[in-house]
Nucleic acid binder design. Structure first.
Length: 950
RNA sequence: GGGCGAUUAGCUCAGCUGGUAGAGCGCCUCGCUUACACCGAGGAUGCCGGCGGUUCGAGUCCGUCAUCGCCCA
């Protein structure tokens, strides 16, 4: 022991200074003897220690791919979901990163070849938005004014300047990713890989161009994919418009009904009433649909109506899309501005007339499609150029004036909105590029179905299947400037040439003049190849060979579709191999009331602020402890404070060890210790390692955190440290000191993945070490360290101490008073146990002396324990009434338990059908309960005597 | 409308394969016993949402209803 106490360090000094270490190393001086005048502080100072620990890790290159890998190690690779360049660390990242970091550190300590790959996403629309806003604030030219090239240059400039702060912030959390391998989705190599995928998919027919309705974002003036659309419920109106029948047609329309719903009154009409939530789109109407079985309108199918305002003659068609129950049962059809209407139009052969521009303003001038069959009018001219909502009002006003507004009803309905712009999406007819997602989905489904990739929790596997089974073509072109420009060139006739470079495209075109498609790719198209792209694909790099497929993907449920499913599809299409073997999907971090954290609600907890206040370890431990699989976590600051206290507890246990000269002994053999308490805590440590590994292997992070907490606080601090105090004064002092040092070292090692900073700091604080803690060997011991005899003995002793304390407290024995303990009956095993551990009981239960007696002294309190009966002679000291109550409470509880057990054991079916060991267990419990009842009854009787006598 | 999930101590939640209901915080009573007051000792608190079923045995499995939440349309 006491190895470091004199002379030079037992290990060659580390090449890395520990600025947080006060002894040795710090100022370049050789290690000095212990300096009792400089004890550890009472609390861990996270603010100063964390940067120092980070610096030590970095100086050592501790997180480089393969660091600390043993020869022939298995690879463990994990990808950081690349945050947006514009991003900053929020609680969701903190949670996500903490879980990944735990896995990475755990595997690294186990000697696996760990690669944790970090990087950033260019995040097309989000970044373009941020930079545009910046430009406006600084009074610069707008995007359009400066032009594409200059704008993109600005974005790059901005990215260099302020992008990637999130990775800096991640270091505060302790993220152990390999920053030397940092990648960006717009890096040159990555860009080439993205284009290659496009070209490859194009050639294989997996990417195609199509003219169809897309979700158009009028704010950003770009197409977006289905996933980027949010359905928002809104209060709106249903307007009824009258479209006049052509050719002087009239019909009888039912207007009065009897109780059974039969028509009893009719009126003669020369018009059809259509109901709509979007009157402004009527300019593009090319039909009216009624349900084929709707008796009210059946006879009108095939006739035409005249579109008000426009004068276009449009047919009445029979289509099941028209719901007789909704509105008037007749619905206007605008194929160019509504997804359902588009379908109807396709089925019924109706024209699609686009009446808006890219900003969702009415666009009639020069609109040949529109004017075909329409009558020019002043009213129409007045609508041209109006915003869609202004146009709505104008049209309604005209309808009222002209008498074709039939009526208005209030209605709530669901309106699609852009998830970034928050404006209503306009279904818009354009040419876009699509990925044939259905084809790509098949292998992605198969890979999860046959277990090549496992998705946890299972529930999310279902979500994944459901989405892929019903997948729609993926629109990947965006009318933005920031992103990977689509590698397609067109000749004068509009024929496309897809190639990696313009030169190649020109060669394909036979030298014709070409212009490049101005659009860029959906951000998710490039992040979709994150696994391959970061490892150097399409080159056959050693990293690709070593780390692909990656081991685990840890990510939130909100990007299962956006990212996880698409990575599966794309990687499989490119290599035939899955991108990851396991996917762990975690839930959302919410505020303490369960609300989603959002800027507008102002309920954001900023992880950096919390780290400043409580330290990164506390934040990490909290997130880990709350990470029950698949459940959202409600984060409260109190909880974080609680786990900060936990760190302090560990710190003080180490401080206690230091004050008592417990130095790690490299030759310590945990199996060789002899004292019961030492054998017991060694066994507990063995159990912890097994529990912890099992929990981490199963992604049961909360189980891991709770096991650590229960061990460190509940076992080591509450009991072992207290037990060690008397032992330090006795014959086993040396063994106990060594065991204490070992136990604490094991705590540091096992806690390190979750609380890396405080453990690394303590590791350096306690002794000179050959290695950083983050590279310490993960132990392989387990339950073989458990000595059942020592375990049973210690638990019996602990139970006895607890009983005595409980009695003392309940009977208001002054906390400082020492009392005698009288042994009445004691089985041989228990007698030996007590004999061996007398000093522990004496100190922890505040016993004055041990006595033996045949019968309980008058006025004594009786304690019944398995294998022994004790008394505390407290006559005169105790509160008799309180004791009566205590006994009554105890007897009541035991009585209930015994009754339950008796009932069970009297049940013939139970005896016949339950497994033998269960039956035996119940019998043993009944016996124990009955024995205790006897003892307590006797005690109650004596107490009654005492009360009568007194 | 379709799918998924939740309902357990005052609060926030664990409870994996059915076999004595747990944790943290909060609360109450004591306590500066030299590791720790970011602490220690002790204590109180549960028709495990309702109903029905399977089982020797159900918080745990099945059905159903209610309430809440999320995703998709």
């Amino acid at each position: 022991m006491a190895l470091a106490s004199i002379g030079p360090a037992p290990f060659p000094a580390l090449s890395l200074p520990f600025p947080f270490r006060r002894r040795g190393g710090m100022s370049g001086r050789p290690p000095r003897p212990r300096m009792p005048e400089m004890p550890m502080e009472k609390t861990f100072d996270a603010k100063t220690a964390e940067p120092a620990v980070s610096a030590a890790w970095e100086a050592a290159g501790a997180f480089r791919a393969g660091a600390n890998a043993r020869p022939g190690a298995e690879a463990f690779s994990i990808l950081l979901p690349p945050p947006n360049v514009t991003g900053s660390l929020h609680m969701g990242h903190a949670f996500n990163h903490t879980l990944m970091d735990i896995l990475a550190r755990w595997h690294r300590m186990r000697g696996d070849d760990v690669l944790w790959q970090p990087g950033l996403d260019h995040a097309g629309i989000a970044t373009q938005m941020v930079v545009e806003r910046e430009l406006a604030r600084e009074g610069n030219l707008s995007r359009r004014e400066m032009g594409r090239e200059a704008f993109v240059a600005k974005v790059w400039e901005w990215k260099e300047k302020s992008g990637g702060t999130i990775l800096e912030q991640s270091r505060r959390l302790g993220d152990s990713f390999d920053l030397s391998r940092n990648r960006f989705t717009m890096d040159e190599g990555f860009h080439d890989a993205v284009l290659r995928v496009f070209v490859d998919f194009y050639r294989r027919g997996l990417i195609y161009r199509g003219k169809r309705l897309v979700n158009w974002d009028p704010h950003f003036e770009t197409a977006i994919s289905d996933l980027e659309v949010e359905q928002v419920e809104e209060k709106g109106h249903l307007w009824r418009l009258r479209y006049r029948l052509e050719g002087g047609e009239t019909y009888r329309h039912p207007v009065a009904f009897d109780a059974e719903g039969r028509a009893t009154g009719w009126e003669e009409r020369d018009y059809l009433v259509v109901a709509t939530t979007r009157p402004e789109t009527m300019l593009g109407d090319t039909g009216v649909a009624v349900h084929p079985e709707d008796e009210r309108y059946r006879h009108l199918v095939g006739r035409t109506v005249r579109l008000p305002l426009v004068g276009r003659s449009i047919p009445i068609v029979a289509d099941a899309h028209a719901d007789p129950e909704k509105g008037t049962g007749a619905v206007k059809i605008t194929p160019a501005h509504d997804f359902n209407d588009w379908e109807v139009g396709q089925r019924q052969g109706l024209r699609a007339i686009n009446v808006m521009d890219t900003r969702a303003r009415i666009a009639l001038e020069g609109n040949a499609d529109f004017w075909e069959g329409a009558d020019a009018s002043e009213a129409l001219a007045g609508l041209d150029g109006l915003d869609r909502y202004e146009a709505r009002d104008a049209i309604l006003t005209l309808a009222e004036e002209e008498g074709w507004l039939d009526g208005t009803d209030a209605e709530t309905h669901v309106v699609p909105h852009g998830d970034r712009s928050k404006v209503a999406i306009e279904p818009f007819l354009t040419d876009q590029w699509y990925v044939d997602a259905a084809t790509l989905a098949r292998p992605a489904l198969a890979a999860v179905r046959d277990g090549r990739t496992r998705i946890l929790p299972e529930r999310d596997e279902k979500t994944y299947f459901h989405w892929l089974e019903n997948i729609e073509p993926w629109c990947i072109s965006r009318q933005l400037w920031w992103g990977h420009q689509i590698p397609v060139w067109y000749d004068e006739d509009g024929a496309p040439y897809c190639a990696m470079t313009e030169a190649e495209a020109r060669a394909q075109a036979g030298g014709k003049a070409l212009t490049r498609d101005p659009d860029v790719l959906d951000t998710w198209f490039s992040s979709g190849i994150w696994p391959l792209g970061t490892l150097g694909w399409p080159e056959e790099t050693p990293e690709l060979e070593r780390y692909y497929p990656t081991s685990t993907l840890v990510t939130g449920f909100d990007i299962i579709f956006f990212w996880v499913a698409r990575m599966m599809m794309m990687q499989l299409a490119l290599t035939g191999e899955v991108p990851f073997r396991e996917v762990y999907i975690h839930a959302l971090v919410r505020d303490e009331k369960g609300k989603k954290m959002s800027k507008s609600l102002g309920n954001i907890l900023d992880p950096i602020e919390l780290i400043d206040r409580y330290g990164a370890d506390a934040v990490r431990f909290t997130l880990t402890a709350m990470a029950a699989m698949g459940r959202d976590l409600k984060l409260s600051e109190e909880r974080i404070a609680g786990y900060r206290n936990f760190g302090t507890k560990l710190w003080n246990a180490a401080r206690f060890a230091e004050m008592n000269d417990c130095q790690p002994d490299p030759g310590f053999d945990p199996e060789a210790v002899t004292l019961t308490a030492n054998r017991w805590i060694v066994g507990e440590t063995g159990r912890l390692r097994e529990t912890l590994d099992a929990a981490l292997a199963a992604y049961r992070f909360n189980d891991a955190a709770n096991a650590l907490y229960a061990h460190v606080w509940g076992k080591v601090c509450d009991w072992y440290v207290e037990l060690a105090k008397p032992l330090f004064a006795g014959a086993g002092a040396a063994e106990t000191r060594a065991t204490m040092a070992w136990v604490l070292d094991q705590c540091l090692i096992l806690m390190h993945p979750v609380m890396p900073f405080i453990t690394e700091a303590l590791w350096g604080e306690i002794a000179e070490r050959g290695k950083l803690l983050c590279h310490a060997d993960w132990p392989g011991y387990g339950a073989e360290l458990v000595d059942p005899a020592a375990d049973a003995e210690m638990n019996w002793i602990i139970g006895l101490i607890e009983d005595i304390r409980s009695v003392r407290a309940q009977l208001h024995v002054p906390a400082g008073a020492r009392v005698p303990l009288v042994e009445l009956e004691l089985a041989p095993a228990q007698a030996e146990a007590l004999e061996r551990n007398r000093p522990l009981v004496e100190r922890l239960a505040r016993i004055e002396r041990f006595e033996r007696a045949e019968a309980p002294p008058r006025g004594a309190i009786t304690l019944a324990r398995e294998g022994g009966t004790f008394c505390l002679p407290l006559a005169g000291v105790i509160d008799v009434a309180a004791e009566r109550e205590r006994l009554a409470r105890a007897l009541d509880k035991l009585g209930k338990e015994a009754a339950g057990l008796r009932g069970k054991l009297a049940n013939a079916a139970f005896l016949a059908r339950a497994p033998e060991d269960v039956v035996d267990e119940q019998r043993a419990r009944l016996e124990a309960a009955e024995a205790e009842i006897e003892v307590l009854k006797a005690a109650a009787a004596r107490l009654a005597d005492l009360e009568r006598g007194a």
